[in-house]
C-alpha cells in the first residue's frame, strides 16, 4: 500500500529511504560539530574540528557502561527508544526526495508525537536511577515539551492547510511546485515559530545550554547525567540526529528547492548535496544566534514559547483566515 501514489515506487524508493537514513545518521554529528566549530571561532577560539563529535561517539561506544543499581530496565531500554524514534522521524522527514512512499506511513503529527515518544522515554529514564538531577531534568524537559506542543501543532496547521496535506512529502512537493506559497508571510511565520520550537526541543540556547556543566541549569544534560558508555553514545547520537532532522525539516520546508521530485540517481545525489549545503547554512545561523544569546531563566522559557505560539497563530491567520 505504500507503493501507490507519490513520486517514487518500489526498490528505488527504498534505496532513497536507506540513503536518507544513512545520510542523516552520518551527517548529524558533523552538523553539531560544525555548530560548535563556528561558535568556537566566533568566540575567538580555535575550537575542535567539526568532526570531533564522531570521535566522541566512537570513544563512548568503546567505553564501559556504569549503571546504577537502583535503575531498572527502563534505564537500559530508553536510549534505544529515543534513538529509534528519532531515526524513524529522520526517515519520515523528506530530505532528498518528495513525496516518497513512506510519506504515507506518517505525517507531521506523527513526527511530533514520535519526538514526544523520545522525550517520554528519556523523561522516565531520568527518573529511574533516583537521582535528584534526573528528576529535575525530566520535569523540565517535559514541561518544555508540553509547552512547545501547541506551537508545533499550530505550525503544522499553518503549513498543512495551504498545502492541502499534513504529510511532509506532500507539503514539500507542493512548495516546490508553488514557490509563491513557500514565500508567503504565513509560511514564513510558521517556519519562524518552528525554528523557535526547534531551539527548545533540540535543547539549544536560549532554552538549554548543551555545554553546561552546572547541574542547576541543565535540562537535557540532567536527564542523561547517569548515562555512560554506549547508552550515552546512543542518546548523544539521537540528540544530534534530532537537531539534524529539525534543521533539514526547516530547510526543506523553507527552501524546498533541490529536493528531488522524481528520485533518479543523479537527482537524489544532487539533492543530497544541496541538502548538506542548506543544513550547513542553517547550522551556521544557529551558531551565530547562540553566540548572540544568553540562556534564559527556566521560568522565562514559557514566555519564549508563547512568542512562538503567537507567531504560529499569526501564521494561521495570515495564511488562510485572511484570504
Amino acid at each position: 500500500m505504500i507503493g501507490a501514489g507519490g513520486g517514487a515506487t518500489g526498490l528505488g524508493a527504498i534505496l532513497v529511504e536507506v540513503l536518507q537514513g544513512l545520510l542523516a545518521l552520518l551527517l548529524a554529528p558533523g552538523i553539531v560539530g560544525l555548530v560548535r566549530f563556528i561558535k568556537a571561532r566566533l568566540q575567538g577560539r580555535r575550537g575542535a574540528p567539526p568532526w570531533q563529535p564522531y570521535r566522541e561517539l566512537a570513544k563512548l561506544f568503546g567505553k564501559e557502561m556504569v549503571v546504577s543499581r537502583n535503575a531498572s530496565w527502563i534505564f537500559g531500554v530508553a536510549p534505544y527508544v529515543v534513538f529509534a524514534s528519532t531515526l524513524a522521524v529522520a526517515l519520515l522527514v523528506p530530505m532528498l526526495a518528495a513525496p516518497l512512499p513512506i510519506d504515507r506511513a506518517g505525517d507531521l503529527i506523527v513526527v511530533v508525537y514520535l519526538l514526544l515518544l523520545g522525550t517520554f522515554a528519556i523523561g522516565l529514564a531520568g527518573l529511574d536511577p533516583g537521582s535528584a538531577f534526573g528528576g529535575m531534568g525530566s520535569s523540565r524537559a517535559l514541561t518544555i515539551a508540553a509547552l512547545a506542543e501547541p506551537t508545533i501543532a499550530l505550525a503544522v496547521f499553518a503549513l498543512a492547510v495551504p498545502a492541502g496535506s499534513t504529510n511532509l512529502g506532500r507539503i514539500v512537493a507542493r512548495a516546490i511546485e508553488d514557490p509563491g506559497g513557500a514565500l508567503s508571510p504565513g509560511h514564513l511565520m510558521a517556519l519562524a515559530a518552528l525554528f523557535i520550537v526547534m531551539l527548545a526541543e533540540a535543547g539549544r540556547l536560549p532554552v538549554d545550554n548543551p555545554a553546561t556543566h552546572l547541574e542547576l541549569t541543565m535540562i537535557h544534560e540532567a536527564m542523561i547525567l547517569e548515562y555512560s558508555g554506549r547508552s550515552l553514545a546512543l542518546l548523544e547520537w539521537a540528540a544530534f540526529l534530532k537537531f539534524f532532522v529539525f534543521l533539514s525539516l526547516l530547510a526543506n520546508l523553507g527552501l524546498p528547492w533541490g529536493v528531488a521530485l522524481n528520485p533518479g540517481a543523479s537527482a537524489v545525489l544532487v539533492a543530497a548535496a544541496i541538502l548538506i549545503v542548506k543544513v550547513a547554512l542553517l547550522a551556521a545561523a544557529v551558531a551565530v544566534l547562540e553566540t548572540r544569546l544568553a540562556k534564559l531563566r527556566l521560568f522565562r522559557v514559557p514566555e519564549l514559547l508563547s512568542v512562538s505560539f503567537l507567531l504560529a497563530l499569526l501564521a494561521i491567520t495570515s495564511s488562510f483566515l485572511v484570504e
Binding site: S68, R69, S131, E226
Partner: peptide
C-alpha cells in the same frame, strides 16, 4: 560497541 557493563551507585 564495548559490552562492558558495571553496576555502581547512582551518581549524587
Amino acid at each position: 560497541a564495548s559490552r562492558r557493563r558495571r553496576v555502581g551507585e547512582t551518581w549524587g
